[in-house]
Structures are given as structure tokens and as C-alpha cells.
Design a protein around this nucleic acid. Structure first.
Length: 570
RNA sequence: UGCUUCGUGGUGUAACUGGCAACACGUCUGACUCUGAAUCAGAAGAGUCCAGGUUCGAGCCCUGGCGAAGCAACCA
């Protein structure tokens, strides 16, 4: 298909193509750290659907492991029973597989480690490194200080080990109400790093967990679960986004108090993915779903994996996109055009070409016998001969695109107009001899043409030059369809970054246009969901999941590049 | 008046242990074309946040500024 390597089975390549994280990994291997092992993990919280930002993380976690001959675990970070659900677990697994990655039998859950985590917490208490605090969250927050002012110590900080043990045991047993007590690590209330000021490591939650049910009344915080889970699984490189940079000292502090040998996981942070004209936080996406501003997590306008899939994006296009944007520590906003380029590039090679008229107007060929029909042979994909060809029925009445005709066209308009000639792709050259117009609305009702029999594709006069080539669909053979044309969800490049404005103010009112009177060539009657095509001269389209035999529904993935569209706007 | 991190064309990334700033997208030309697509050829566009310093030579090293982001959830 092309000369690019598709990101599958690479051997450790020349270091020039390694990103900064892979360079670290390579160094660690060279220095023999952790016996030269490479073992990563992708740790989603099952509280929402995955988006393309997660795809970036997935490609790194699975990709770098693969690159260095290591493994990558899937681990659900399910330490908060208030927000997590099995529905999300299933969608996450589906999305990762769809992207082309596999965790084999290594599907883990932070909740698998609740017992070990609890034991470790007890151990910290016994070592005088953790204590139960009876204060509420407001009081604790007040003592925390601010980034510029040190905190003050809790009055409960120096309880006896026995009392701490007793209290923590009773917290676990469910003797106390939520919010009445927490377990805190005893580190340093004056640390310049807020996360080291005696962080809360266990809180009381009286709520069933999606996997452990009602077994627990205390649940570990993220910081008390993540690094230790890495440690339990033998993870060597724990890759996460920049905002966790300040957590790293705590990560290391805990791992150092847990480990018994030389092995230790290393956390490395990279920049998260931002895209223009969209939002990327799970919370914001959830808001769009809950407030019905989109049709669901898999609305084709959503930057979710499931949304992009439904929109018609291919896994390869997403992986290639991720490869081109790279991994750094700079907070960047990527141009949406880069993503669009990635799909066009992939679909150009793969998608069969077909004829679809989205905004039809009738064209009658007056000198073509009304009872005649021909089958025109059309190439399925000029980029790939192996995709063969198909027959498309032709007759005297056709649909063409309404905007392919102008009553009074400018000279640069290469399409149909009075007395003008165009090529009907794969068929004949026709000349416009007249048209009907509804004088009241100004709407063109019908266009009349004459064809030249010698100009049939492959025929004697087929090489005659005409300015334009149009796609068409035979009226009597046409299949009716609904086509949804999508545009960017927001009409501002950076909807989140506008001070004093809610991002929802920037929702694009025209992000969805539903066309219900589309005419397709007959080969498209029975498409299956996710089938992808290039509607010739228009763009790439993908059959929607709700598409049914005889009643196709298509989503526009991305339009073709449109030089004329740009010219005509000027 | 803290800590951490970052600062290369419009956007995103490169530039091995210092050697005349490269690639992709986007933009604009032109060629070709039975998709105004794709393809091909070419152009414009940064002197690397600023100021000093080291050096024959600095985007890379040093010093000092300036700017931006993250950090004060019993979220992850």
C-alpha cells in the first residue's frame, strides 16, 4: 500500500527515531536496570469512554513495549466505586482491540490488589508512617497550606501506633460514616510539593464496588494504588501525562517503602493530546452526552474512539496520526487538519469509489432512447488495481449534483451550464441544451442535455477534452439514502481556553446536516455498518451502525480536499 | 511571593557526544488528470523567547531575565 511502516512489528530501530521516552527506556536497558526488562501498562479508569488522547497513550504504552520486546498490561484503575461501571470496562476493551493492540491474558484491576494495598497501609501505620486523621476534608484542606505557604500539622498526627491500628481496622469494618476519618501518610507538611503534605491515602466509602461488591468500606486513593500496582505487576516504565509530574516524588516515596530489592518502576510523563475545535476532557465529554448536546459517547462528532470509529476513521489512520504528532513535554494543540489528513491518506488507498448524489437534480438526455439502458464499467479504486471494477447502470434520466449546474456560470466554473459540455464519468460527454426553472422559487427543476454517442468511455471520441467531469446516478436505478454531513463540533479553535466563556457557547450549530433525499448507485443498497467508500468528488463516507439493507445511512468521515470550494469563497 | 515543567516557521515534530535549522500538515503556484481528488514539481514562511557569556563556531553548554502551564479533590 505504501512505504510507511504501519507501526506493527518493529525491532529496536535506530535511536534517531526514538522519542524521548523510548530513549530513556533504551538507556535503562543499556544500564541493565530491572534486568533489562521492559513492561508497561495502560491504566484507564472505567468511568467513561476512551478518546483519542487515550489512543495516544495506548500507542505509547503498547507500542514501546512491543518495540523493545516487552509486554504491556491492561489495568483498570478502579479505586473509586462512586464513578466506575462495568459498561465502561467493556467499551474500553473493545476500543483498545479495535485500535490493534492486545494485552493477552494480562487484564488486571487495581481492585485486585485491595488486600495487598490494605496490608501495606497497615505496615506503614506500624512503621509510624501513616496515621488516622479524624478531621473532615475542610479542616484538612485548611491545614494543607497553599503552594506558597507551608501547611500545619494535624492534631492527630502523632497518635500511637496502637490507636491508629485500632481506628483503621474499624474504618475497614465499616464502623464509621463517610468523611469522618481518613488514613494519611506521614511525610512532610512543609514540603514545597503539595502532594507530600501528608496525603490522604485511604478514605471511607460505603458503596458497592463494581468488582468487590460490599467487601470494603475503605478505598485507596489514586496515589496509594497506582505506583504499588505497578510494583505488584513488575512494571518497569509507568508512562503518564504531564499533570502527574508533581506526583512522582510521592510515587517514588511509596514504592521505596514497599520494595524489597533493586527492582523499581519508573514514572515518565509526556504531553497530552489536544486538538483544535474540540474538547478532550472526559468530564466535558460526559457533559455533552448527559446534556444531550450530542447523541451519545459514539456520536460521530465526538473525539472518542467510538465516535471516530462511527465517523469512519480507521485504526491505522489514528495510529499514523499519533505517530506524526509525537511525544514531548510541550503542551501543544494539534491542528485538526492533521487528523483529517491521516484519514484521507489511509482511505484514499483503501476505499472503493462510488457514485452518490447528495443534493439531486434531474438531468434528461433528450437524444438517448428512453427505453435504453447500459451498464458502464467503473474502476473501483484507481490507486489499487486489485480492487477491480463494477458495472453501473446508465439511462436517459440521471441525477446530478445540484451545485454542478449554474445558470450563469463564471469562466472558472468547470461544470455544467447552458451550452456547456461536461463528461459524465465513465459514460458520455453531454452538452446542456436547456433547463426548467420554477420562476417563483428560482429553483432548477430539470436540466436537458444531448449526448455524443462516440464519446463513451473507451469509444472513438472518448479523448475529447472537456473542462469538467461529473458523477451521476440513474434515476430508475437509484437507491434512496440518508447522509449525515458532519463538521467540527465547536466553531472556536480552543473552546476551553476562552476566559469568561463557557466552552458550550462555542458549539457549532451546523455541526450536523442531515440529507434525506440522497441518491446512490445500486451497488450501495446493502452496505453493512462501518463499510467505507469514497463518494466520488465529495468525500469519504461510512455506513452508520443504524444502516439497514435497502435503507442505507451514511456518515461523512471527511470531505475531499476542495480547491474549487476555496476558489469560490474568494 | 513556593515547587515542578516547558519555550524552534501558522500548527505539530527533527536537528547524533555544539558544525551554516530539517520533515509533516496547512497555505500559494504550476504540471498531469474521465474525481477541481490523488500524484508530481516548485514557492513563500522561523534564524530557534530576550540579554549576556564560553567557543574558531551554540537551537544545543553556562548565567540572568521574560513568558506559559501544572500543583492547594476524602477524583484519576
Amino acid at each position: 500500500m505504501n512505504e510507511k511502516n504501519t507501526g506493527g512489528k518493529n525491532s529496536p530501530a535506530e535511536s534517531s527515531s526514538l522519542n524521548f521516552i523510548e530513549q530513556f527506556i533504551e538507556e535503562d536497558i543499556r544500564e541493565g536496570k530491572n534486568d533489562g526488562r521492559v513492561h508497561t501498562r495502560f491504566p484507564p479508569e472505567p468511568n467513561g469512554y476512551l478518546h483519542i488522547g487515550h489512543a495516544k497513550a495506548i500507542c505509547l504504552d503498547f507500542g514501546s513495549a512491543e518495540r523493545f520486546g516487552g509486554k504491556c498490561n491492561l489495568r483498570f484503575d478502579d479505586t473509586n466505586p462512586m464513578k466506575e461501571e462495568t459498561e465502561y470496562v467493556d467499551s474500553i476493551k473493545e476500543d483498545i482491540h479495535w485500535l490493534g493492540f492486545d494485552w493477552e491474558d494480562r487484564e488486571y484491576y487495581a481492585s485486585d490488589y485491595f488486600d495487598k494495598l490494605y496490608d501495606f497501609a497497615v505496615d506503614l501505620v506500624k512503621r509510624g508512617l501513616a496515621y488516622v486523621d479524624d478531621q473532615n476534608s475542610e479542616q484538612i484542606a485548611a491545614q494543607k497550606g497553599t503552594p506558597t505557604k507551608p501547611g500545619t500539622e494535624s492534631p492527630f498526627r502523632n497518635r500511637s501506633v496502637e490507636e491508629n491500628l485500632d481506628l483503621f481496622t474499624r474504618m475497614k469494618a465499616g464502623e464509621f460514616n463517610e468523611g469522618t476519618r481518613v488514613l494519611r501518610a506521614k511525610i512532610d507538611m512543609a514540603s514545597p510539593n503539595m502532594h507530600m503534605r501528608d496525603p490522604v491515602i485511604y478514605r471511607i466509602v460505603n458503596r458497592a464496588h463494581h468488582r468487590t461488591g460490599n467487601k470494603w468500606h475503605v478505598y485507596p486513593m489514586y496515589d496509594f494504588a497506582h505506583g504499588q500496582s505497578d510494583y505488584f505487576e513488575g512494571i518497569t516504565h509507568s508512562l503518564c501525562t504531564l499533570e502527574f509530574e508533581v506526583h512522582r516524588p510521592l510515587y517514588d516515596w511509596l514504592v521505596d517503602r514497599l520494595r524489597t530489592g533493586d527492582y523499581r518502576p519508573r514514572q515518565i510523563e509526556f504531553n497530552r493530546l489536544n486538538l483544535t475545535y474540540t474538547v478532550m476532557s472526559k468530564r466535558k465529554l460526559q457533559e455533552l452526552v448527559e446534556e444531550k448536546l450530542v447523541s451519545g459517547w459514539d456520536d460521530p462528532r465526538m473525539p472518542t474512539i467510538s465516535g471516530l470509529r462511527r465517523r469512519g476513521y480507521t485504526p491505522e489512520s489514528i495510529r499514523n496520526f499519533v505517530k506524526t504528532i509525537g511525544y514531548t513535554k510541550v503542551e501543544a494543540i494539534n491542528d485538526f487538519a492533521l487528523l483529517e489528513h491521516a484519514v484521507r491518506n489511509d482511505l484514499n488507498a483503501k476505499a472503493p469509489r462510488v457514485f452518490a448524489v447528495l443534493d439531486p437534480v434531474k438531468l434528461v438526455i433528450t437524444n438517448y432512447p428512453a427505453d435504453k439502458e447500459e451498464e458502464m464499467e467503473l474502476v473501483n479504486n484507481p490507486e489499487d488495481e486489485s480492487m477491480g471494477s463494477r458495472k453501473v447502470p446508465f439511462s436517459n434520466e440521471l441525477y446530478i449534483e445540484r451545485n454542478d449546474f449554474m445558470e450563469d456560470p463564471p469562466r472558472k466554473f468547470f461544470r455544467l451550464g447552458p451550452d456547456r459540455e461536461v463528461r459524465l464519468k465513465g459514460a458520455y460527454i453531454v452538452k446542456c441544451t436547456g433547463y426548467d426553472k420554477d420562476e417563483e422559487t428560482g429553483k432548477i427543476e430539470k436540466i436537458y442535455c444531448e449526448y455524443d454517442p462516440d464519446t463513451k468511455s473507451g469509444g472513438p471520441a472518448a479523448n475529447r477534452k472537456v473542462k469538467g467531469t461529473l458523477h451521476w446516478v440513474s434515476v430508475k436505478h437509484a437507491v434512496d439514502a440518508e447522509v449525515r454531513q458532519y463538521d467540527r463540533l465547536f466553531n472556536h479553535e480552543d473552546p476551553m481556553g476562552q476566559k469568561g466563556h463557557d466552552y458550550k457557547e462555542f458549539l457549532n450549530p451546523d455541526s450536523l446536516e442531515v440529507l434525506r433525499n440522497c441518491k446512490l448507485e445500486p451497488s450501495l443498497a446493502d452496505v453493512k455498518p462501518l463499510d467505507k467508500f469514497q463518494f466520488q468528488r465529495l468525500g469519504y463516507f461510512c455506513a452508520d451502525k443504524k444502516s439497514e439493507p435497502g435503507k442505507p445511512v451514511f456518515n461523512r468521515t471527511v470531505p475531499l480536499r476542495d480547491t474549487w470550494g476555496k476558489m469560490s469563497k474568494k
